[in-house]
Amino acid sequence: MGDPFTVLGVAEDADDAAIRARYLALVREYPPDRAPDQFRANRAAYEAVCDVRKRLEARLLRTSDAALDRLKRHCLQSPAGGTQRAGRRTVASLISESILQSDALRHGLGQGKP
């Protein structure tokens, strides 16, 4: 299971009520009948941090990737806050890689005879 705070999308200092509210919102968004795997992951994360003692257990007794995760998020923040542009060469490389990974030709192999 990943970091429960990250899975739920709540801050590490969130209280019981905030965590429960967020969990219930996720249950509505990913109900067990439509997204069983996501529901299980959310449930496990909620169980791990639903009260103050469990949050302490997670913080004091186990290793956590949360801090490293926070650093990565910091690096991923875009200071400009919106879509910029990408160089023509970057776009060409992206399309080239996209073609290489594509299954379009594999599906049609063996059918093309003039």
């Binding site: 776009v91 399309i95 594509s102 379009a104």
Partner: peptide, 8 residues
């Protein structure tokens, strides 16, 4: 998925 533009 599978389209040559999917990665894009």
């Amino acid at each position: 998925p599978g389209s040559p533009f999917y990665g894009f």
